[in-house]
Amino acid sequence: MNNKLGLQIKKYRLLKQMSLSRLAAKASISKSYLSGIESHKTNPSAHMIQKISKALEVPVEQLLDIQVEILDPEWVELVAQAREIGLDKEEIRAFLAYEAWKRSIKEGV
């Protein structure tokens, strides 16, 4: 069982100055169940982790202590614009492959 999850939940609960009772009520789970998770006696399902995450207003990735790379906003905007004009993923991939090929020809690779 992953002990880190219980520690993370407790850490964020205390940072938000929430009691076990308050977080349990906000997540619509029992206080004893939440206590079991925090004390590593209970292994929650993905659904329960989502409920607790939502109640704590913390992304699931933070509770699971997963490092997530943030996408460059300019790339996100560029892809959004491509999709708006009707390009799908395969067309975007094909375009990128074509541009990489052109660059390799130009550089003599």
Rank of each mutant, 00 (worst) to 15 (best):
L78M: 14
I70M: 08
V79Q: 07
L78T: 14
N2L: 09
M48D: 08
D65F: 10
S53P: 07
P73Y: 06
V109T: 12
L87I: 00
R22F: 00
V58N: 03
L71Q: 12
I37E: 01
S104R: 15
E77N: 01
S45R: 07
K41M: 12
S39R: 13
N43E: 15
G36T: 04
A24W: 02
E99K: 12
K89I: 11
L20T: 00
A27M: 06
L56I: 03
L34V: 06
I105C: 10
E99W: 00
E107P: 04
K89P: 00
K54A: 12
H47G: 05
G108I: 05
E57Q: 08
G36I: 03
K11W: 06
G108Y: 05
R93I: 10
E74D: 15
A94K: 13
E99H: 01
I37G: 01
S32E: 13
L78C: 11
L63M: 06
L7V: 00
E74T: 15
S53W: 05
Q81C: 12
R93T: 03
K16A: 04
E91Q: 15
A82C: 10
G6T: 03
A97Y: 00
A55F: 04
M48N: 14
I66G: 03
K89Q: 09
G36P: 02
I37Y: 05
I92T: 06
Q50P: 00
P73I: 08
K106C: 06
M18Q: 05
L20N: 00
V58I: 15
M18R: 01
I66S: 03
H40G: 09
Q8D: 05
D72H: 11
K31Q: 14
W101D: 14
M18S: 03
S35H: 11
W101M: 12
E91H: 10
I52H: 02
H47W: 02
S21G: 14
Q50V: 08
A80G: 11
E74Y: 14
I85A: 03
E69H: 13
I105F: 07
I9V: 15
L56V: 02
K51V: 02
I105R: 14
L87H: 04
A24F: 06
E77R: 09
E38F: 07
I52A: 03
K16R: 13
E84Y: 02
P59W: 12
L15K: 05
S30L: 13
A97D: 10
K31Y: 10
S30M: 13
